[in-house]
Amino acid sequence: MTNLLSTSNQEEFGLNVLIIDDNEQITKMISSFLDMSNYECTVVNDGKEGLDLIKTNQYDSIILDLAMPEFDGYEILDALQRENPSYLSKIIVLTASNVPIENIQKFKELGISSCLQKPVDIDQLLSKIIDSSV
């Protein structure tokens, strides 16, 4: 396991990460370990609010859940595809749902950074965050 706290270059990262997930418990936990690693973290539990933040702020990486009430992750992807396609490469889809294979293919075509199914290993998630921020 990578221990980010002991990583010598942690200061260099300092990435600005947005987490959009309706599961408050998960968002709190992810933001805790990202905070501990000196990442700047913004958390929203509502899809619409998340989309507004993406449009008005610059993020190095965006962790996005798909199944959310009211305004879900697919709607966010729809909107970004139309209005801000350049943000799609910053998106890491992190979902507990079964994602149909056609959608995974579509995500690739759209340039979405990665699609991970929960539970995901933290090292893997951290490495995907770094990948998406490049």
Binding site: S32, P100, E102, N103, K118
Partner: peptide
Amino acid sequence: LEKENKFTKNMAEDYEHRLREIEQEKVIL
């Protein structure tokens, strides 16, 4: 995109979904 709406899925899939969320919480903890 084909939507995966957890609210219209059957109970077994809801359960599976919730289980994955809990496992994720455990991994982070």
